[in-house]
Design a protein around this nucleic acid. Structure first.
Lengths: 220, 220
DNA sequence: ACCTGAACACCGTTCAAGT
DNA sequence: ACCTGAACACCGTTCAAGT
């Protein structure tokens, strides 16, 4: 994403920080103080360098965040893939989801379709697995991309909603009863005492299965 | 979301601003300078009041954003709903999607499952329509909520990805060829010259149809 | 090459005081 | 009731200068 300060550097002042050190310090900072406390200034302070020094190693804050996510994804567990293509899509998607969901702040980083293209090859195995399985099921390349993108959108959305729910847990539970007018919203009104409980459940797997089945109806 | 400075106010200094004025000014500011320029300080400057004055009318910045989204959603077009329940789900979901997609900055506001509960009744007609249609199709209440949540996650994800793609349009197109290793990622490598084009397409409707069909396979 | 402090141009929010 | 300025505690980023 940014040219690394490689070992080919020839002369001049020896560097006091490297990209690897920066990423390690960033991980430690997040671990210690939380994601929202990751700022260029704090990170530089942790490293014992001036804030502006970091701009020699990363392009900007977003670049830093992307590097961080990529290095995390690279070391995420990678499950054995089952032989059956449909199962392979489910397994790869779930692994992709679980890796991302484990880092709730991922939402601030997942930007653009281009986001995927910025990851390193080791982080993209799940993309490859889903595309390959779709092709095995008889999808054309165009259809396979559609399958992947639809799963990707669903996955990103689930993680966004999940992450925000978790973050504002300290808030009062949403007072549904206040806003819901039984005349205008009868079904919702009849449901709102159970909504709280249902909305908290992890339904990613169920939704994914339905989505994959729906996507494969007209294929193969 | 915050108690309004209602007409029941009795004595004291007459107010120079109201919530309605604040929201109107915020809309104008966004129109003029863009969403990212909406700050408490700028908004107050536009209104000709001190920045701190706004805290008498909204709880905080997030509250302001939520109020803004709600007032926008209230006035969004509301399509005629078809009689057939499956079509009704598609129509209501698409309307919900299109309303949200028209305001790309919606992503910063959609927080938590609780987000939905914070909207006013007029903004929630699509939620009601989807739930009611699912029940009409034979879903139990629990299943209907699952149908809605799954569609919601898909919709939110599509909008997140869409919004971020649009925002960073000035950036270089993601240079796929650099990162993609044909040995590790053969399917992806064989696709990357077409990926750019495919990723730009609007596939919300296709994905939604697949999702709804998948969700309804085991129902009714 | 690499690192630095100073500076620029901002933020959201609190609080004691004024009218 | 409503509004205020001052202050607190920060941000990301640029730039000219130093080693």
């Amino acid at each position: 994403v940014t040219p690394a300060s490689g070992p080919s550097g020839r002369t001049g002042r020896p560097s006091r920080t490297s990209r690897a050190e920066i990423l390690a310090a960033a991980r430690a900072l997040i671990e210690r103080d939380g994601w929202e406390k990751l700022t260029i200034r704090r990170l530089a302070a942790d490293l014992g360098v001036g804030a502006t020094t970091l701009y020699h190693h990363v392009r900007d804050k977003q670049d830093l965040q992307l590097l961080l996510l990529d290095s995390y994804l690279e070391q995420s567990p990678r499950p054995e893939l089952p032989p059956e293509p449909r199962e392979r899509i489910i397994t790869a998607s779930t692994a992709m989801h679980d890796s991302l969901a484990a880092w709730p702040w991922v939402v601030e980083v997942i930007s653009a379709e281009g986001f995927i293209a910025m990851l390193s090859a080791d982080s993209m195995w799940s993309v490859e697995a889903i595309l390959a399985a779709a092709v095995d099921l008889g999808c054309t390349p165009v259809q396979a991309v559609h399958v992947f993108r639809t799963i990707w959108h669903y996955t990103v959305g689930e993680i966004l909603v999940r992450a925000r729910s978790a973050r504002r847990a300290g808030d009062q539970p949403p007072d549904f009863s206040a806003g819901v007018d039984a005349t205008k919203l009868p079904t919702l009104a009849g449901l709102f005492d159970r909504w709280q409980d249902l909305a908290g459940r992890d339904s990613y797997a169920d939704g994914l299965t339905a989505l994959v089945d729906g996507l494969l109806i007209n294929v193969g």
